[in-house]
């Protein structure tokens, strides 16, 4: 940062004291302004969510209305959920999320660790190839993936294992963030262990993995969160079979024209129940998420 040199201004040093006082009042003012800004932002950020929560406790009507605070409060909408397939969807999503988190983490770690630590023929080419295919819009693939899964009988009612398979199988492409992390662990650690006679596998399990806790948690967290929000691909695969839907698909179906008037507040209640575990988990593991995205951004 050579520009620093240009900032020399001799007069500052001649009257340091007065200037200091100015800075202090200035800081108080600017901090107050920032606090006010942050409060405003927080309100803007939270209003929609507060609205959704309030709607979910509204009893007097089930459709969209023009006011926010319910006239009559109650758990009716949550009770109404029990009469739908909502909890089947919820369980489906939970199963998908757990298995995806487990297998996807293994796949991603395998990929990223290998690409970070090993130097083998074709490595650069492989990475470039994956970069290039990553640029192809994946949206269309779902038409083919549907047919492959249909041939394996993993659609409709069996969509849950089908979705896990697809999520996990294509997850190797997302190795970038954790490779960036592995790159930061000094190679000398591996070499020392290798000299001591450890095999490559032992190096991975005994030395690297314990150090990689943040990135492992980051990977699990992102893999666990994604299935809760997938409504395009999951809708295509479940083909309207309630048994195979995830929460996103199920809830989304309540917003179509025939159902919205009767199911709107129930949708809000379902939304709240979906958001709670994901949000809570996210809040707890925020630290790791930050380290993950920061690492990913820095390494690109």
């Amino acid at each position: 940062m050579s520009e620093m040199n240009q900032l020399e201004t001799p007069e500052v040093e001649s009257k340091p004291k007065k200037r200091h006082m100015g800075i202090k009042t200035q800081r108080v003012i600017s901090n107050t302004i920032i606090h006010i800004l942050l409060v405003i932002m927080s309100v803007v950020w939270l209003v929609p969510f507060v609205c959704i929560v309030l709607q979910s406790f509204r009893v007097e009507s089930t459709w969209q209305v023009g006011y926010i605070v319910p006239q009559k409060w109650g758990f009716d909408n949550y009770i109404a959920l029990t009469k739908t397939d909502f909890f089947t969807w919820y369980l489906n999503t939970f199963i998908i999320a757990v298995f995806t988190a487990l297998f996807q983490t293994i796949v991603v770690l395998c990929m990223s660790y290998t690409l970070s630590r090993f130097r083998f023929r074709g490595r650069k080419g492989l990475m470039r190839f994956m970069l290039i295919i990553g640029m192809f819009p994946g949206m269309l693939s779902m038409i083919i993936l549907y047919r492959i899964l249909a041939d394996l009988h993993l659609t409709q009612g069996n969509a849950v294992p089908g979705l896990i398979l697809v999520y996990v199988a294509s997850s190797g492409m997302g190795y970038y963030v954790s490779k960036g992390f592995f790159d930061t662990i000094p190679k000398s650690l591996d070499e020392a262990a290798r000299v001591d006679g450890a095999t490559r596998m032992q190096v991975l399990f005994k030395i690297i993995l314990p150090l990689a806790k943040p990135i492992v948690i980051y990977t699990i967290l992102t893999a666990f969160m994604a299935p809760w929000a997938d409504f395009v691909f999951a809708r295509y695969i479940s083909m309207n079979t309630s048994q195979g839907m995830n929460v996103a698909v199920g809830l989304y179906s309540w917003l179509n024209k025939d159902q919205i008037a009767g199911k709107y507040t129930t949708f809000c209640a379902g939304g709240v129940l979906v958001a709670i575990p994901v949000t809570v988990l996210f809040m707890f593991l925020q630290k790791y998420y930050v380290s993950g995205v920061t690492g990913g951004a820095v390494k690109g």
Binding site: M111, T114, R117, S141, I144, L145, S170, G172, T199, R200
Partner: peptide, 26 residues
């Protein structure tokens, strides 16, 4: 397979997945 060739062991499954579920549809 767990030592010098460990990377092959590690990459086998992920790459198969990418081949069948990403490259082939593409």
């Amino acid at each position: 397979l767990v030592d010098e060739q460990f990377h092959k062991t590690l990459l086998a499954l992920p790459l198969t997945g990418i081949l069948v579920f990403t490259v082939m549809p593409m």
